[in-house]
């Protein structure tokens, strides 16, 4: 975490479905932003370390997400694969302030803001 994070606003919490996720395209990659049943927000790179599955499309349960391609389960808090599987999904920093969601982007992700 050597880079200084740039905190960007990505809209209200209600823009993300409960027990669901939406994606944010950055200059270098795509981020999956999750909202859990207890209304907490987490973010991972939208790329399963196993076969690059889009984690944003998985079923969200507790503070976990299940990859839609091969059912690997990842902790939203740490990015670590659960159970017998090995691997770690890249974790991103998030904040929830006054109902607004913010994500901490690295300089390379900020290089060329691409808001689709």
């Amino acid at each position: 975490m050597a880079d200084i994070l740039n905190w960007v606003d990505i809209g209200p919490l209600d823009g993300i479905p409960v027990q669901g996720a939406r994606t944010l395209q950055t200059a270098s990659d795509r981020i999956a932003v999750f909202r859990t049943l207890d209304n907490q927000v987490f973010a991972l790179l939208d790329r399963c370390p196993h076969k690059q599955g889009p984690l944003s499309q998985g079923i969200v349960h507790g503070h976990f997400v299940t990859c839609p391609l091969h059912n690997m389960v990842f902790s939203l808090e740490t990015g670590l694969a659960q159970g017998a599987d090995d691997g770690c999904a890249a974790k991103m920093e998030t904040r929830l302030e006054n109902g607004m969601v913010r994500v901490g982007l690295t300089p390379s992700q900020m290089a060329k803001p691409d808001a689709q």
Binding site: V8, D9, I10, G11, G15, I16, P17, G20, R22, T23, L24, Q25, V33, V103, L105, P113, A115, Q116
Partner: peptide, 10 residues
């Protein structure tokens, strides 16, 4: 509708 649109950074 949210399924088919990305979030956008302000």
């Amino acid at each position: 509708a949210h399924e088919f649109k990305h979030l956008t950074a302000a």
